[in-house]
Nucleic acid binder design. Structure first.
Lengths: 347, 347
DNA sequence: CTGAAAGCGCTTACAG
DNA sequence: CTGAAAGCGCTTACAG
């Protein structure tokens, strides 16, 4: 039924022109007589021709595809609502540019390296680096492989490197300010015993939020001495909360590094007899849809995951097009106040 | 710094053989003398050569990539934990086979069609169809485009079609049994007023669960007259719950079609004064990590999203390899009992 | 404004 | 067991 797919040669023949002219008519890289191009488009349409992307890729050394590798455990990808929103944001701009997104979910470092190597074998033009860690090896790896990259971060890039080394653009949000605002909200409500459940501190973004928490506490003359490291799963949110609530001198408020940990923590606190928010105020991070529709809602911070995806994709396309930016700030991070904060009941 | 990537010609020259032999040494499609192959691999290694996938794709008409288009709103993709787990499952088998996954998140039907058309232009070898609807146009669309496909479903395929039409393999779970079990659990606990909050009924899987619910109720001599259609978001879970709880003759148990709706519903019920599970028993679907770590935990059904992804990918690879299955059952659907069910307090 | 031809980097009959 | 060559379907200097 579908026989052999038509080629550019078929279209050329049908339109009575050369293959080169068909190509040019579509790419617009050189003018083609109006009448000619009409004939070409008509022929292509009736043959239902569309250029083979592998042939194009081979001829141009461009794949029209970008790559994204996610190196987290599936449970975490599943609970954290960041990824799908980020990807949807990417897609919106990629689709518009006729580009595709190649996705890889890997289990370990070796699989990750293998994924980038496959990318470099002409599968993608560039990559977006997520979940950057301190001393991350990936920027060097992808550079070595000849892949154009963009890094997603939660803080402005440091100004260390000499300007002449080829620089990987950083697309970043400023999470620190939002975390500061959260702490301020809590302090204003009367809290002084505030804890933080962080994400895995090897991640730059998790460390950045933790540091921001500590700085904000200090600014208010409070001791940031109740910080426990979670891993973004509900399990860790519950366990961290149990640890914090154990004993009688427990905090009256907890700032969680993501919504899932906050929800699990909140549920635990409630089951152990505390009223939310009267006995324990909580805040999340990432503003998931669920948080907005809990009763009471969870105060969280919206980081515009989709906007970040769009900007990251746009920045990567620009870099592929030759104009690299050093750093671009995504300015959509905003605290969303909901009912999960109240004055502390009794110290 | 990275200069031109080495080609198979460079390797051939370095190893003192023809390009064809290099190719054969790697593909193993014909024997190559042990000594020769050693020289070839050594040369390739030292040149850091790996075959260009666009050239391979052009030469073989195989892209080593499969496509997945997701046509849901980003909020829903983000809240529903199915997708990431499904994708992770796919990846595991794809990576092993050296295949890639191209992902597209689309906003509407036109974008979806466009995505499949781009796929057909030699970007992917086959596709997995998710969220199938009644009278879905996509099976025909992709067949027309010459794409090999696999359909993911929540029920066994009907036996209608004449066997000679090229058939699209269906990878399915049997959700009905699990839903029946859920109802039975509730009935055994003493409930008779049981409601259901379904997913969007245009989806085959949502309709299948709704039908299973109705059938189970009927089987127990109960009237399945409290069914409200949700859309899998927390917002709809909360609203549906509010509607069901409004008035005095409200149900004593609610079976939700996914976990997020259940959690939002549970939260709403609690905030309106009901104790969970004493005053209202609830069950979810999909067994998200969060549900397992709530206090009390949410009784849910694990459908093995990752296993389904793996099986779907495996089935697609098989179909691409020429041996198509008519239908393959993924047998991992199991009810996970947690604390969200209790006998009804007072009618 | 258009055509003829080389080239992108592989694979695969065809010979030997 | 191996080589020489054609071919996959495009794009892009080079001529005109």
């Amino acid at each position: 039924m579908h026989g052999a797919r038509p080629t550019i040669g078929d279209v050329a023949r049908a339109a009575g022109v050369s293959k080169g002219t068909v190509s040019l008519a579509y790419s617009g890289k050189r003018p083609v007589a109006e009448e000619t191009r009409r004939r070409i488009f008509a022929a292509a349409e009736s043959l239902r021709w569309t250029a083979s992307s592998s042939a194009q890729a081979l001829a141009t050394s461009r794949t029209s595809t970008i790559g994204l590798v996610i190196a987290r455990r599936p449970e975490i990808i599943a609970t954290d609502t960041f990824f799908p929103r980020f990807i949807a944001g990417c897609e919106a701009v990629l689709a518009e540019a006729g580009m595709g997104l190649m996705l890889n979910v890997v289990a370990d470092d070796d699989a990750e390296t293998a994924a980038y190597e496959r990318y470099a074998a002409g599968r993608v033009d560039g990559v977006i680096l997520l979940d950057v860690e301190q001393g991350d090896r990936r920027p060097d790896l992808v550079r070595e492989l000849g892949l154009t990259a963009v890094i997603l971060s939660a803080e402005a890039p440091h100004e260390e490197e000499p300007v002449d080394t080829p620089v990987t653009p950083v697309v970043y949000t400023e999470d620190a300010a939002a975390v500061g605002e959260l702490v301020e909200l809590l302090v204003d409500a009367g809290h002084s015993s505030i804890a933080h459940v962080s994400g895995p501190l090897r991640y730059v973004h998790a460390a950045a939020r933790r540091d921001a928490f500590a700085a904000a506490m200090t600014r208010h003359g409070l001791l940031p001495d109740r910080i426990v490291e979670g891993d973004f799963t509900a399990a860790s949110g519950r366990d961290a909360t149990a640890a914090l609530l154990d004993g009688d001198d427990h905090p009256t408020a907890i700032v969680y590094a993501n919504d899932v940990m906050a929800i699990a923590g909140l549920s635990y606190a409630r089951s152990s007899g505390l009223r939310i928010p009267e006995d324990l105020s909580v805040t999340g991070f990432d503003d998931s849809e669920l948080s907005a529709h809990l009763s009471p809602g969870l105060t969280s911070v919206s980081t515009g995951a989709d906007v970040r995806g769009a900007v990251a994709a746009r920045t990567l396309l620009a870099a592929l097009g030759g104009d690299a930016h050093r750093a671009v700030l995504v300015d959509g991070t905003v605290v969303v106040r909901r009912g999960s904060i109240a004055p502390p009941s009794q110290p």
